[in-house]
Amino acid sequence: MGQAIAFYTLAAFILGFAIMVVSTRNTVHSVLFLVLNFLFVAALYVLLGADFLAVIQVLVYAGGIVVLYLFVVMLVNLKRAPEAHEDPHRRTTLGFGLGVAVLLELGVIGAYTSTQVPAPVAANAAMPMAGNTEQVGWLLYTSYLIPFEIASMLLLVAMIGAIVLAKREL
């Protein structure tokens, strides 16, 4: 009962902040609501018993990535109105397309999970049941080793790319 109340309260806050992010006119305010959103998502993770994920959420998203967003927002002059595109309905079309895509995705996920409920990861017998951090580490280095390595390669490539782009003469 208590957990359900907590969940729905947090979910309401998350949704509310998400709406504020897209509806606020001031870009910096919008980024701030994004931070609040991330913090509440972290709280949701705590509720699910995923301490490690919650802390990493705060550290990486709220503490790192959004700071960079703020940097960009503050450095780029946003006072100027965006230039008009030839197609006046471009935004509407784009928004509609994206909305359909998200709905489709949600539908597919819903259909998939309703037919076969994934077995909880804790059922893995080989996993030492020490703590949340160990579980995440164990999963990343066993079942999800290849996606993990690919993600790290991608990040490396992105980093090198950024350096190459930023520094013309090496």
């Binding site: 931070v35 802390v55 990493i56 705060v58 550290l59 709220a62 503490g63 700071v67 703020l70």
Partner: peptide, 12 residues
């Protein structure tokens, strides 16, 4: 990690 992540929020 909690210490590090909370400290990182202080930047704001």
């Amino acid at each position: 990690l909690y210490v590090v992540s909370v400290a990182s929020v202080g930047v704001y």
